[in-house]
Design a protein around this nucleic acid. Structure first.
Lengths: 141, 141
DNA sequence: TTTAGTGCAAAAGTTTTGCATGGTC
DNA sequence: GACCATGCAAAACTTTTGCACTAAA
């Protein structure tokens, strides 16, 4: 299972035309393990706890590369540090539970008509949008 | 004019039950002058250029106080630093031009039905939401 | 006069970079 | 073998804090 997972993780890197290194695999595997989003620092600490020797600078470099390539998303909902999250590649948004910080992905967006309307009202053409919804999840209620 | 502006700026502080100091007035006045959002560092540099002697730590303290009190908004669209912006107090969102970085406020939200639907589909109750739209404004087109 | 805010400098954190070394293609 | 990625340590930044001093209420 870890094997199969690693295989597809490597595919993910190859598909982006970047080199497959054990450190990048580690970072992706760790992101795959995370239910919620993590900062570079958090991710690095967890790798260390697992015995990894990967350097912090490498984690930063891997995360920003993967973000550029669109393999992972960067959110910034709490405070000043960026959080990263492995994502599926379809357009989607995030909803975060304010109590337990669980993140769920909202697949169907369906906001295009609304967006087009709002944008044109201000003489804009909307090219991208990002929505962050905060709420309370079922188990925290 | 500067006088009238300062008067209402002072009101803004008094209304929040915090002390009216010249430094806080300067920060608010500067925010009022800014068309777009600024970081703490940028704001401090501009004050310096105007001859202000206000310390950087004070700018940070003022911004976070004003943000807590809901007088200013904190956005984080580019990179890792927080940007601040003086805001009107109604619920609204921001649309940023990707070419000139101009920010316009989108007043009418009207997303509540959509939100409620999305949230309930994932067993959430939506309490807050933030939308950042990126696009191209009329004059950059 | 009491209490809160400021300036300064130091500390704490996060992120980036330079460069020699090692791994990938 | 060429080129890219890594580790390490240093540097560059941003943000926070402690403390003596000053200003607001």
């Amino acid at each position: 299972m870890a094997r199969a997972s690693q295989a597809s993780t490597a595919e993910l890197l190859r598909a982006q035309g970047v080199r497959v290194t054990s450190q990048r695999l580690e970072v992706l595997e760790e992101l795959r393990r995370e239910r919620d989003d993590v900062t570079a620092q958090m991710l690095w600490r967890r790798l260390r706890e697992r015995g990894s020797l990967t350097g912090l600078a490498t984690v930063y470099r891997a995360l920003s590369l993967l973000n550029e390539k669109g393999v992972i998303d960067a959110l910034s909902h709490h405070g000043t540090e960026l959080c990263y999250r492995l994502c599926n590649d379809t357009h989607h948004h995030h909803m975060v539970c304010s109590s337990c910080h669980r993140v769920v992905e909202v697949e169907q967006c369906g906001l295009e008509p609304w967006l087009a309307d709002v944008a044109s009202r201000h003489d804009f053409v909307a090219t991208e949008h990002k929505i962050e919804i905060t709420g309370i999840c079922g188990s925290c209620r």
